[in-house]
Simulated assay, not measured.
Amino acid sequence: MRRIGNGGEEAVVRWLRAQQWQIVARNWGCRRGELDIVAYSPGGVLAFVEVKTRRPQNWDADGLEAIAHRKQQKLIGTAQEFLQAHPQWHDSPCRFDVALVLYQPSPVGGCYRVHQYLEDAFTVE
């Protein structure tokens, strides 16, 4: 299952780079958790991107339901630690984005497609 998730993250990185985003970090971890992708937008926003990769006909709205309040709080805490560890980004405007990726299995490895990209998917309370 981790292999499928890695493929989804790679698809999102390619998608972001195609839109001129700078990838700042991938799979950045600390004691609180892990950030899938940290990217800097052409508009000057630092985005903490949570990637959810699912097969068609999944049970959780293509991964959207997996970003419940508890997961959001974990991501917020992890992002705060990232900013403490990387003070050069401390004054940048930040937001939390969610990338939903659909994975279609096939005999030759499968196909990944960024199905939905939700900017500012949730806010810090």
Rank of each mutant, 00 (worst) to 15 (best):
residue 23 I to G: 03
residue 24 V to G: 04
residue 54 R to K: 15
residue 8 G to E: 06
residue 90 H to A: 15
residue 88 Q to W: 06
residue 98 V to P: 04
residue 30 C to R: 08
residue 113 R to W: 01
residue 38 V to K: 08
residue 7 G to R: 06
residue 3 R to C: 02
residue 121 A to E: 01
residue 2 R to A: 12
residue 116 Q to N: 08
residue 30 C to H: 06
residue 22 Q to Y: 05
residue 19 Q to T: 06
residue 61 A to P: 00
residue 16 L to R: 11
residue 22 Q to W: 06
residue 14 R to Y: 05
residue 69 H to C: 04
residue 69 H to A: 08
residue 86 H to M: 11
residue 82 F to K: 02
residue 85 A to V: 12
residue 114 V to I: 07
residue 103 Y to V: 02
residue 56 P to G: 15
residue 36 D to A: 02
residue 99 A to L: 06
residue 26 R to Q: 14
residue 78 T to F: 04
residue 124 V to C: 07
residue 121 A to Q: 03
residue 67 I to P: 07
residue 28 W to Q: 10
residue 83 L to Y: 09
residue 120 D to S: 13
residue 9 E to G: 11
residue 87 P to R: 13
residue 1 M to T: 14
residue 112 Y to G: 04
residue 84 Q to I: 12
residue 53 T to F: 14
residue 68 A to I: 00
residue 23 I to N: 05
residue 117 Y to R: 01
residue 77 G to T: 03
residue 75 L to C: 10
residue 8 G to T: 05
residue 71 K to T: 11
residue 60 D to E: 15
residue 79 A to V: 03
residue 72 Q to Y: 02
residue 66 A to H: 02
residue 20 Q to G: 10
residue 93 P to C: 12
residue 30 C to L: 03
residue 16 L to D: 10
residue 70 R to K: 05
residue 3 R to H: 09
residue 48 F to P: 06
residue 63 G to Q: 06
residue 101 V to Q: 01
residue 71 K to E: 15
residue 83 L to Q: 09
residue 29 G to C: 07
residue 102 L to M: 02
residue 91 D to Y: 07
residue 7 G to M: 07
residue 97 D to P: 03
residue 97 D to V: 02
residue 105 P to F: 01
residue 59 W to L: 13
residue 103 Y to S: 05
residue 73 Q to L: 08
residue 53 T to K: 14
residue 108 V to H: 14
residue 30 C to M: 04
residue 64 L to D: 11
residue 14 R to P: 05
residue 44 G to F: 08
residue 9 E to Q: 15
residue 107 P to L: 03
residue 21 W to D: 08
residue 50 E to P: 11
residue 34 E to Q: 04
residue 98 V to E: 03
residue 110 G to S: 08
residue 28 W to T: 14
residue 78 T to K: 09
residue 63 G to A: 06
residue 14 R to D: 11
residue 123 T to F: 12
residue 48 F to T: 03
residue 50 E to D: 14
residue 120 D to P: 05
residue 104 Q to V: 11
residue 45 V to F: 11
residue 74 K to G: 01
residue 122 F to K: 03
residue 14 R to I: 05
residue 35 L to D: 01
residue 24 V to A: 07
residue 87 P to D: 09
residue 23 I to M: 06
residue 15 W to G: 14
residue 29 G to E: 09
residue 103 Y to I: 01
residue 84 Q to K: 15
residue 81 E to P: 10
residue 67 I to M: 13
residue 36 D to G: 00
residue 94 C to E: 05
residue 77 G to R: 04
residue 8 G to R: 05
residue 109 G to T: 12
residue 70 R to I: 00
residue 115 H to N: 13
residue 12 V to F: 10
residue 12 V to K: 07
residue 92 S to A: 15
residue 29 G to N: 10
residue 81 E to W: 13
residue 28 W to K: 11
residue 15 W to T: 14
residue 10 E to M: 10
residue 108 V to W: 01
residue 41 S to G: 05
residue 123 T to E: 15
residue 71 K to G: 01
residue 86 H to E: 13
residue 36 D to P: 00
residue 37 I to E: 04
